[in-house]
Design a protein around this nucleic acid. Structure first.
Lengths: 340, 340
DNA sequence: CTGAAAGCGCTTACAG
DNA sequence: CTGAAAGCGCTTACAG
């Protein structure tokens, strides 16, 4: 099996196109980048030359000459969590439509790797950057501040962003869900998550919950945190463990819907009555949440919208405009369903 | 609220570092890129200068000078489908570890946009490219062939790849599931998907099914294709429609697990006995598939592994080595569970 | 082991 | 509306 390859040819450059069209390279550059500054006839001739030679613009050279590229780095802590992927998808949608390319960095929740990613990406002379979360190494924050170009921190809404911030208040989300549970009459509520130390947004939701419980003079428990990554099976197992070890607990607030849906599916199989025996609540608003029986009470987080707004804000600033708000608190929605 | 920005400083270049360290720029370049070619003392002095000045290597200039970057473009048809995201995650894992960056292109299943993405990405002088699927415009295929650098087509295993190919045979997957259904005694089987015209991999699974049905002399039906994108709710609705309109159908082979799990959740709610009244099978192997009741019979596709192998093959070739196989047929696994 | 020269393929800024 | 010159910040290839 011989490789299905045509031998690599000499790179076709702007100069080649210019010669072919009988103009200067500068004119070709203009015809390509600012078509309106060139006469129609000339533009047609140049386009013909481009097609004839199969010219592909060297973006690297362009970026160097103009000291800037149209590549936007996006840094996320994980690609196995749908939540981040949906934010990336939202960013993609807006960025690609505006002619920007996305470079993808995955930190695996490691702040050192985040620093490395940021500083590498800076080497691509991007016009701005989008980064998930507001918890970074001081070095990272300083590097980005000194850099001085637009930066959007996404996911959570918080104080003192590096530059811009688009997200939701996880503390408030925790409060909102807990208020609902308390109103419904649940008194022994426990928070269950995975790797809550690293998933500090889940920890914020827990704090919101704790605040509400304290206000109502209800029993306050430490969160239960498992060491594996969130997955539905873990949610089901957690439910069974809690029923066994802490029979008084009457409601579980799971850190996310993966866990909560897993708990409901397990309950179904085991014949455990939800919410009668124990109530279950989640966070995120996964598609399956509304379809399981009982349907899951959860909080819808607008991931896609966060991504879109983040990209819009960034592009506004890249284009030299000033967005109305530097910090955007996107709202969430409590979906009360059957599981509570 | 004044922007939390420090004024942008003059860019620190290699030359600045060289002056600070008292050597030539060339030596700094070597110390940074090939540390082993420089004495320890010198390297330490240069690293100190880098830190002192906060130097960030300009990758754009490097890429232009060396006529190549370490950016690998990855082109997928969608980010809303988990399947592609998992492939991207697999690629990320291997590529990032080997020092490559990923550029992300989303075609939204539009082959024209795919062409645009490919030709734009070529302008970044990448050392190779990974692209989902084997169905492209002739222009796209020709462009990539003429380009002459390593290209991996992923997702499906097929004939005549542009260069390399890593994926699974969807035809065989369709055959395997159908053989199972026939063995189990189902005789009136229907294939249900969404946008099967665009989702040609689903169409290949259908063809595999059709072949097996024909061999067994069983009833062959056209696939049922909905115009919306795949989602669990659609799966549930499809189940109900088929029960109403085609009561003889005794098994549904869904194009993917999103639809199939949706069907099972709906059946649960409606009190429809699966597999007794009607059997349900899926494709992909989503986490929820094994947790619903009844657990879903499906085919596990190794998305993450496809991504990893694709990246490995590409990097092998970028590094000048020749992978053992140019085409890799990754295996899939039939998971027989309760729903059939 | 270290350095001076040339050049990668564009765009900016200045002329005409 | 079009072009000649200079330069973006590196690396390659050649010397010493």
């Amino acid at each position: 099996m011989s490789p299905a390859k045509v031998p690599a040819e000499r790179t076709v450059t702007l100069k080649d196109v210019a010669e072919h069209a009988g103009v200067s390279p500068m004119t070709v550059s203009r015809a390509l980048n600012k078509p309106e500054t060139v006469s129609d006839a000339l533009r047609a001739r140049i386009e013909a030359a481009v097609d004839a030679l199969g010219y592909v613009q060297n973006l690297v050279a362009g970026a160097l000459a103009s000291a800037g590229s149209n590549v936007i780095p996006v840094i996320v802590p994980s690609l196995s969590n749908t939540v981040f992927v949906e934010i990336v998808a939202g960013i993609q949608e807006v960025a690609q439509a505006a002619g920007f390319q996305l470079m993808l960095g995955n930190t695996e929740y490691d702040l050192e790797r985040e620093y490395t990613a940021v500083s590498t990406f800076l080497g691509w002379s991007p016009p701005g950057m989008i980064i998930a979360g507001m918890r970074h190494l001081d070095r990272t924050r300083n590097l980005l501040k000194r850099w001085g170009k637009p930066v959007v921190e996404t996911m959570e809404f918080g104080a003192q962003p590096i530059d811009m911030n688009v997200g939701l208040s996880h503390f408030k989300a925790g409060e909102a869900m807990t208020r609902h549970l308390v109103e419904r009459g649940y008194r022994q509520i426990v928070f269950v998550g995975c790797r809550i130390d690293a998933d500090y947004r889940a920890a914020q939701r827990y704090k919101g919950m704790d605040r509400v419980l304290a206000r109502h003079g209800l029993a306050r428990r430490d969160p239960i945190s498992y060491t594996e990554a969130s997955n539905p099976e873990r949610g089901g197992a957690a439910l069974m463990e809690i029923l066994g070890i802490k029979p008084k607990v009457d409601a579980i607030f799971f850190a996310n819907d993966d866990l909560a849906v897993g708990a409901i599916l397990r309950a179904q199989r085991e014949g455990i009555a939800i919410p009668k025996r124990i109530a279950v609540a989640g966070f995120n608003g996964l598609p399956f949440a509304s379809l399981v029986t009982p349907a899951l009470t959860t909080i819808m987080s607008p991931r896609h919208e966060i991504g879109r707004i983040a990209a819009q804000q960034l592009i506004e600033r890249i284009s030299g405009r000033t967005p109305a708000r530097r910090r955007v608190d996107v709202s969430f929605e409590l979906q009360v369903r059957e599981s509570t």
